[in-house]
Design a protein around this nucleic acid. Sequence first.
DNA 1: ATTTGTGCAAATCGTTTGCATCTGA
DNA 2: TCAGATGCAAACGATTTGCACAAAT
Lengths: 150, 150
Amino acid sequence: MTAIFEQETSITAKNVAEDLSKKLAGAGLRVTAPRLALAQLLFGKGNRHVSAEALYEEARGAGLTVSQATVYNTLNQFEAVGLLRQVQVDQARSYFDTNIDTHHHFYVEAEARLIDIAANAVDVSKLPNSPDGYDIERVEVIIRLDKSDA
Amino acid sequence: MTAIFEQETSITAKNVAEDLSKKLAGAGLRVTAPRLALAQLLFGKGNRHVSAEALYEEARGAGLTVSQATVYNTLNQFEAVGLLRQVQVDQARSYFDTNIDTHHHFYVEAEARLIDIAANAVDVSKLPNSPDGYDIERVEVIIRLDKSDA
DNA sequence: ATTTGTGCAAATCGTTTGCATCTGA
DNA sequence: TCAGATGCAAACGATTTGCACAAAT
């Protein structure tokens, strides 16, 4: 929606691009045009939950010429270096979450929509011990939602 | 359920089949040979977490001649009528859980293995309000595990 | 007799990969 | 220069579907 090119006001496009370049470089990734452009879409405004397909459409809609393969590769690489996290709520498609802090999710299956829940809004006060030989990597709370009957 | 003396010895195959027939019929499903056979594999012994592919292999290994399509259809139907629940922890494949009571899961990604956690072993003492117009359908807690470093 | 289920193979969908060609450090 | 990235199309793997036949009510 908001153009990537119309940043003449406060935050310049150059500033944003520089920040994102640092982000990529800091993660050990080469700063390439497709990565930078996708990073702009992903991290340009607030936290997002994006599927590969959706990001691809968005990129094309914004006039970028990236291939699906690059979108997939980029998302996977961003996840590998910790810039994104994958959320598994739907076997049909993967979601990537730009919020990498500890938090949880609402999921509205009917709308394929994810909503963040702040970590402190959920209190898991009792947890089982993990089986011998295993450590807890992460505790995910997913609250599945249904439209209330009108 | 069944008379006491019938259980004293061993549970006969016929008894099991009868129970499962009731289960299917009670759920509004026609009792067909493939369904009964798959139900036996699924519900015959304890709670299980099965992928469609795994169940198909198991069925064939047991000498059954069912098609993959039937395995998929059957699993989906069983889920639709509430005999099974799907667990989404891996985007690669779906798991079906024969335990339909409220409970949670450990997931060992490296081994593609699910482990049940009794509902009372987890205490979610604080939950956020669901967004307007939506009701909570289910709260899922998934604890992802890693092998501890030796 | 009519509805529903089954098997087979082909189709679908999201995702990955091989390879020739570019590009950033 | 040259390892690493990109695009394209083909390959893939899990799941679904169309259709002719078989079984259940």
